[in-house]
Write a protein that binds this DNA or RNA. Sequence first.
DNA 1: ATACCATGTATCAAAACGATATATCAATTT
DNA 2: AAATTGATATATCGTTTTGATACATGGTAT
Lengths: 181, 181
Amino acid sequence: MANERKIDMVILGLLSHEPLTGYDIKKRIDGAIRFFWKGSFGSIYPALNAMEKDGLVTKENSSESGREKIVYAITPSGTAALTAWLKDSQAKNELKYETLLKLFFGGAVDKQATVHTIEMFEQNVRQELELLKRYEQNLSRVLEQQDHVYYYLTVTFGIETYEGYLRWCEKAKGMLLGNSP
Amino acid sequence: MANERKIDMVILGLLSHEPLTGYDIKKRIDGAIRFFWKGSFGSIYPALNAMEKDGLVTKENSSESGREKIVYAITPSGTAALTAWLKDSQAKNELKYETLLKLFFGGAVDKQATVHTIEMFEQNVRQELELLKRYEQNLSRVLEQQDHVYYYLTVTFGIETYEGYLRWCEKAKGMLLGNSP
DNA sequence: ATACCATGTATCAAAACGATATATCAATTT
DNA sequence: AAATTGATATATCGTTTTGATACATGGTAT
């Protein structure tokens, strides 16, 4: 049972649009993708090497423009692996929310500490939500263009959930501070 | 820079209420906690051993009722570690949504495949939401009791976000199937 | 009887994280 | 002109976590 590396699919998905370096891939993951996935150099570079050996991608040294770098491109075999994964509708969704963990065990400390944890969370959500809304505005203008729907939908997913987070934060703070009418 | 094991905090939090075996801890994590965190035997047992060596927990062989087992209890030192973590309002929240990943790269396959992926997600969310709502009903009756607020709030967090997920699923399916009026 | 499932502890390979090391190039500062 | 800074770029290392597996016991239903 080959324990399928998920990072492979992220990389293949990105390479299906254009050839990229490992560094490029990391930048893409830290961009729009970061709202629902992440990946580190420590997983990207080993994965690229393994996938090159397996024939899913090709590497090419390019020292033309500026400094030396290794540009990776997807192969037909890589495209096959990507589409096979995409066509499988089963997906594992997993969230690790340290904020919720601290809330769950909040009984061991004073309420103020837990409220503060929620406030930090709230602040971060507010910031990210603003960013997502800017993305949405820009994307809604080019929605007719091919494939932009998919990007757009991941953004609206973020907006929907983040707005839910903010509603919950208000309720949670009110309940902890005893503002029940 | 000791890379603080998060599983330690989950274990200490659970042990702060009552002594437990490793197996018990796993069951607790797979219960109410699974909506915002997870942990496997492969991390629980090694963590328990390490923490016993560090004096954060004590182990005691108990062969009294039925078969042999090892019951762990928290020490003052363990309580100190737990509260120190709880009082730090900074928290890392991270979600890995394979559903969203498949959506993001949906352009590489036919729309039906992506719609099906969303439908599978929707189905799962609907199931979990029902469960969460049952939890909420039961908890709302004992909300005055000590510490139940914290549990209750993690449940309402799940409800709020899951309801947002369902709203999004409708929108997403409509957009992909071209039901725009 | 025996089959089955929950209980219970433990380990292993593989995957991912997070930090760090190293080096080059471009832009800015001094 | 020289020095500094920050972005680019590749790579590795120890640690943590996952997911699977192994193994054994106790209770219960057939």
